[in-house]
Design a protein around this nucleic acid. Structure first.
Length: 477
RNA sequence: GGGGGCAUAGCCAAGUGGUAAGGCAACGGAUUGCAAAUCCGUUAUUCCCCGGUUCAAAUCCGGGUGCCCCCUCCA
C-alpha cells in the first residue's frame, strides 16, 4: 500500500519512499526548554509519534531523533536583548543550565504522561557544540560562511540560490515584506548567524572564532547529521519552523555536505485553544501537568490533540477533552469486555465473517492513515470497529480477533497502551462491597444496593450491572 | 505592508466536479429494579456571503467577510 504525505518542500502530496527500503530515518524539532511545554507543543510532537507508530505498524524500521534546544537564541539577529532561557534564569534566580534541565524534565514528564514512544535519541544542543563547530568550519572551508569584525560568523545566502525553496520566501518577497531590520554587519539581510560573540551570554564555548555560542539553526543540522546522516527521510516541526529555521537548516546542511538534506518535510498546524491562539494574557495556556492536575488522563489528551488532521487547525477546549475522556472510557470498556470474553470462553478459531470484518476494518484504517495521515477517517473506522465489537458481543476466537484488531488500531494512535495491560486490582474491601451489593441486588434489596453503589462511587468505583453480577471500573479519569 | 492556509449541523470533523462519512450533544426506542454501560432510530435539500464556469460545484474561477500561520523568539 503506497503511503502518501504532504511535503512542504513541493507543497504536494507525494508518495513516501524512504531512501533505504523498509527503513525510515526521521528528525523532529523538539522543545526549547525555557518554560513548561504547552499542549500546542505536544500536538506538534504527536505528529512525530503518530508517524513513528504508523510506520512501524506498516513494517518499517524507524530511527527517530528529537532535539532539545537548551541554548537560548533570542539574540539570533538582534544585538540587544536577552534570550528566553536566560530571561527565565534571571527571573528564577537560577543559571540558564539549571533552567534548561528543569524544563527538560518537565518535557519528558509530559511525554510519559501522553504515552509517547521514546525517540531513539534526544540530543541536546549544549552537548553537541563540537559537532556544530565542525559543521561551521566545513561551511567556512567551502566558502559559505564569513566572519565579521564583531567576531560573529554568518551564513552567506548569496552562495546558496535554493534558499527560499521550502518556505517560498524568495528574496523579492522578503524585500516586499520589508520587515527585516538591516543589520549592517551582514552582507545580505537574509544571512543568518552560525556563531555569535556576546560576553553577556551565560552559555559560552571556545571556538575558532572566539568564545561565544552557536546560532540557533546550526544545532539541528549538526545533530541530525550525527544521528541520521547527511541525508534522511522525514523532518517535522511546527508550521512556524518552516521559515526561517528549516529554511536555514537546509541551506547549512546541503552547503556543508553537498547532498540533499531531507526528502520529506511535514509541518504541524498550530493548535488553537477556545478558538484563538494560546497566550498567557488570555489565560488559556494548558500544559500536560495542568490538565493532569485537573484529573484528566493522558489517553484523553492524546485523543483530543490527535483528532484533527495535522495540517488543519484544531481547536482545543476543556469540553473537547471531556468528550475525549468519555470516548476513551468507551474504548476501555469495550476492550475489557472483549478481553474477558476471549479469555473466559474456550479457545476457538474466529468465524470467517469475523475475520473478514476484522481484515476489512484494518485495511480501511490503514488506507486512511496512508493518505497523508487522515486521522478523521481512521478514527471513524476505529469507532466502527468498536461498534462492531459491541454489537456482536463475541466470545472465544471472535472476541480475541476483535480485541486484537482494536489493540492494534489503538496502538497506532498510542491509546490504551497501558490501562488494558492489567485489570486495575481493587482493594479487598472494595471487592467485598461489590459482592455485598450483588447479594443485595439478588435479594431485591434496592435500598441497600443503591447505598452501596453510591458508596463505591464516592471511592471512584463505577459499577456496570450485568447478568452475572456487576462489573466495575475506576470512574472518570 | 508582503506571502501562505482555513471557513461544512448546537459542537468537533471527513469529503477537491456527480448529488453531504463519522463522532459528541440532544431527542425517541430496546435493555435495566432504577441508573450506567450497550444496541437501534431521528437530527444539514445544504456546505461563510455575492457573482461566474459547467449537464452537474461543498468541491473550479473572481470578489467580499472572518479567523489562523509566516515575514520577528515561538510547536
Amino acid at each position: 500500500m503506497p503511503i502518501r504525505f504532504h511535503n512542504t518542500l513541493t507543497r504536494r502530496i507525494e508518495e513516501f519512499v524512504p531512501a533505504t527500503p523498509g527503513e525510515v530515518r526521521m528528525y523532529h524539532c523538539g522543545p526549547t526548554v525555557y518554560s513548561t511545554p504547552h499542549i500546542g507543543n505536544y500536538r506538534t510532537f504527536l505528529l512525530g509519534d503518530l508517524l513513528r507508530r504508523f510506520l512501524e505498524w506498516q513494517g518499517y524500521k524507524v530511527e527517530q531523533v528529537m532535539n532539545l534546544t537548551d541554548v537560548g537564541h533570542l539574540l539570533e539577529d538582534a544585538e540587544e536583548g536577552e534570550d528566553k532561557l536566560e530571561a527565565a534564569a534571571r527571573k528564577a534566580r537560577k543559571t540558564a543550565w539549571e533552567i534548561a534541565e528543569h524544563y527538560a524534565q518537565e518535557f519528558f514528564a509530559g511525554l510519559e504522561f501522553l504515552h509517547f514512544l521514546p525517540a531513539h535519541h534526544y540530543p541536546r544542543a549544549t552537548t553537541h557544540v563540537p559537532e556544530m563547530i565542525a559543521m561551521i568550519e566545513a561551511l567556512e572551508q567551502r566558502g559559505y560562511a564569513y566572519k565579521v569584525a564583531s567576531g560573529n560568523v554568518y551564513f552567506d545566502i548569496s552562495r546558496f540560490p535554493a534558499y527560499g525553496r521550502l518556505s517560498g520566501n524568495t528574496a523579492e518577497e522578503l524585500e516586499a515584506g520589508a520587515r527585516i531590520e538591516i543589520n549592517p554587519e551582514k552582507r545580505d539581510p537574509r544571512d543568518f548567524a552560525l556563531w555569535k560573540i556576546d560576553a553577556k551570554h551565560q552559555m559560552q564555548w571556545d571556538s575558532p572564532w572566539g568564545r561565544g555560542f552557536p546560532g540557533w539553526h546550526i544545532e539541528c543540522s549538526a545533530m541530525s547529521r550525527k544521528y541520521l546522516g547527511e541525508s534522511f527521510d522525514l523532518h517535522t516541526g511546527g508550521e512556524d519552523n518552516v521559515f526561517p529555521h528549516h529554511e536555514c537548516e537546509i541551506a547549512q546542511s546541503e552547503a556543508a555536505s553537498g547532498k540533499p538534506f531531507v526528502r520529506y518535510w511535514l509541518h504541524a498546524r498550530h493548535l488553537l485553544v477556545d478558538s484563538t491562539k494560546m497566550s498567557k494574557r488570555l489565560g488559556n495556556v494548558h500544559t500536560a501537568q495542568s490538565l493532569q492536575s485537573l484529573g484528566h488522563s493522558g489517553d484523553a489528551l492524546r485523543l483530543a490533540l490527535q483528532k484533527a488532521h495535522y495540517r488543519e487547525p484544531l481547536n482545543f477546549t476543556l469540553a473537547s477533552l471531556d468528550e475525549a475522556e468519555r470516548k476513551v472510557a468507551r474504548y476501555r470498556d469495550t476492550g475489557v469486555r472483549l478481553r474477558d470474553a476471549a479469555a473466559t470462553a474456550a479457545a476457538t478459531e474466529a468465524a470467517a465473517s469475523t475475520r473478514q470484518a476484522v481484515d476489512g476494518l484494518r485495511a480501511r484504517f490503514a488506507e486512511a492513515l496512508a493518505d497523508d495521515l487522515n486521522v478523521s477517517v481512521a478514527l471513524a473506522v476505529l469507532d466502527e470497529a468498536v461498534g462492531e465489537a459491541n454489537r456482536r458481543a463475541p466470545h472465544g476466537g471472535d472476541a480475541a480477533a476483535l480485541f486484537g484488531l482494536l489493540r492494534e488500531l489503538w496502538g497506532v494512535f498510542g491509546l490504551l497502551q497501558k490501562s488494558l495491560e492489567s485489570t486495575p486490582l481493587a482493594d479487598a474491601d472494595i471487592l467485598a462491597l461489590i459482592a455485598e451489593r450483588d447479594a443485595a441486588r439478588k435479594a431485591r434489596d434496592w435500598k441497600r444496593s443503591d447505598e452501596l453503589r453510591d458508596l463505591l462511587k464516592q471511592r471512584g468505583i463505577e459499577l456496570l450491572d450485568g447478568k452475572d453480577g456487576a462489573r466495575w471500573r475506576r470512574s472518570g479519569r
